[in-house]
Amino acid sequence: MSKSENKRQLISFLEPKSPISEAYRALRTNIDFSSIDEKIQVIMTTSASPGEGKSTTIANLAVVYAQADKRVVLIDADLRKPTAHHTFGVSNRKGLSSVLSRQCELHEAVQSTHVPNLSVITSGPIPPNPSEMVASGRMSALIEELRNQFDIILIDTPPTLAVTDAQIVATKVDGTILVLDSGKVKRDMVMKAKQQLAQVNANILGVVLNNIKKKNSDGYYYYYYSNAEN
């Protein structure tokens, strides 16, 4: 299968005028206005459980930031079940794990995508010690180096309730978005995920609810709210 055939569809790129693309732009705007005193430059997504749409959300968010003439890099820090190389149809031979294990330099792992202004750092080969890798000082140094090269740094992390990786990365970023599937996730799982992030003082910018059925329509939309205290 060719790279182009292997790409997942990015609706914000293919259908920029669609209601869902507009919802991603609204998410971008809400993030930009979520903090008055501090700059939100490094943002991660996580979810309570697998399959809630966090990777789709952050990929489309990356596209709409790039469409706003921002220099964007998306890091696939889900070192257990990575998806970014499929989404953007790029090689996963070198990536985040390669940089953190000193198998390559950072600039070798940054790849351009078919979306102008958008670069990606794929996961790289799946390592035996993902949690230790993202907890390393080298991960922190990588993020700081990227701050000087890009306007927006987006990081996809594993589900919060599955492993500790998301909690670790949350201590290294400016803000966290919790992505939830409204038809799948249970309230107690949401509260537990939020509690685990709160334990590391994560700055939860808000929540994205996926797959909310609109009345009188067969479509689905993404809804964002910034009040994470509820």
Rank of each mutant, 00 (worst) to 15 (best):
P158F: 06
S226V: 02
A109S: 07
A166C: 07
I75W: 07
K172N: 00
M191G: 00
S91R: 11
N60R: 05
L180M: 13
Q103P: 11
A170M: 01
T45N: 10
V64M: 05
Q111K: 12
D218L: 12
T164K: 01
N211D: 14
L96Q: 08
K214S: 10
I11V: 15
Q195S: 13
E15L: 15
E38R: 14
Q111W: 08
M44Q: 07
G183P: 00
K7L: 11
T29L: 13
I155G: 07
G89L: 10
S182K: 04
E5F: 04
R187V: 08
D37F: 03
P82L: 06
I36W: 10
S12P: 12
Y220Q: 01
I143M: 11
L14K: 15
P16A: 04
D165N: 03
I20Y: 12
V190G: 00
L106A: 10
I152F: 09
H107M: 05
R8E: 14
T122H: 02
F33Y: 13
Y225G: 08
F88K: 11
S97P: 12
T122D: 02
S140A: 15
P50M: 02
K194Y: 08
A23W: 08
G175A: 06
I126N: 10
P128I: 10
I40L: 14
I143T: 05
N92P: 03
V115A: 00
V169C: 05
Y223D: 07
M44S: 02
A59K: 06
I204G: 01
N60Q: 09
L100A: 10
A84M: 14
Q195K: 13
A68Q: 12
L10I: 15
L209E: 04
S49Q: 08
S55C: 04
E229I: 08
A135L: 06
